Simulated scan of single mutants.
Amino acid sequence: LQNVRIDPSSLSFNMWKEIPVPFYLSVYFFHVVNPDNVLKGEKPQVQERGPYVYREFRHKSNITFNDNDTVSFLEYRTFQFQPAKSYGLESDYIVMPNILVLTAAMLVENQPLSLKVLMSLAFSTLGERAFMNRTVGEIMWGYEDPLMDFINKYFPNLLPFNGKFGLFSELNNTHSGLFTVFTGVKDFSRIHLVNKWNGLSKVSFWHSDQCNMINGTSGQMWAPFMTPESSLEFYSPDACRSMKLVYQEAGVFEGIPIYRFVAPPTLFANGSVYPPNEGFCPCLESGIQNVSTCRFGAPLFLSHPHFYNADPVLAEAVLGLHPNHQEHSLFLDIHPVTGIPMNCSVKLQLSLYIKAVKGIG
Rank of each mutant, 00 (worst) to 15 (best):
N66I: 04
Q80T: 15
P112G: 06
F79D: 08
L115P: 02
N37Q: 15
Q111M: 15
N110Y: 15
Y87V: 07
A84Q: 12
K43I: 06
P112D: 05
N66Q: 10
L118A: 09
L115D: 09
S61D: 15
F23S: 10
E90C: 03
Q47K: 09
E90L: 14
P51L: 01
G127L: 03
F29H: 02
V117P: 01
T103D: 06
F57V: 14
S26K: 02
S72F: 02
V46M: 01
P44R: 06
Y54S: 07
N14P: 02
W16A: 12
K85A: 05
A84D: 13
K116A: 07
R58N: 09
G88L: 04
T78P: 01
G127E: 10
F81M: 13
L74P: 04
G41Q: 11
S61Y: 15
E42M: 12
M96S: 10
P35M: 13
A104I: 03
K116V: 07
N66D: 11
G50I: 00
K43S: 08
R129L: 08
D92N: 12
V38L: 09
I63Y: 02
F81I: 07
Q82W: 02
Y28F: 13
A105G: 11
K60F: 07
N14I: 11
Q111Y: 14
L39V: 15
F23C: 02
F79P: 00
A105Q: 04
M132P: 01
L89W: 03
F65T: 04
E18G: 11
E48N: 14
E18F: 14
D92V: 01
M106D: 13
P22Q: 08
M96T: 14
L89A: 11
M132W: 06
Y76I: 08
V71M: 11
F123C: 00
S120A: 10
L74C: 06
Q111D: 14
L115S: 12
A130H: 11
I99M: 13
N14E: 14
V27P: 03
S114N: 14
M15K: 14
S86Y: 02
V38W: 05
V108T: 08
G50N: 02
E128N: 06
K17L: 13
Q45D: 08
L126E: 09
V108E: 04
G50Q: 00
L102Q: 11
F123D: 04
T78S: 15
D36M: 10
S26N: 03
F79I: 10
V21T: 07
A130E: 08
N34E: 09
N14D: 15
V21H: 04
V38G: 03
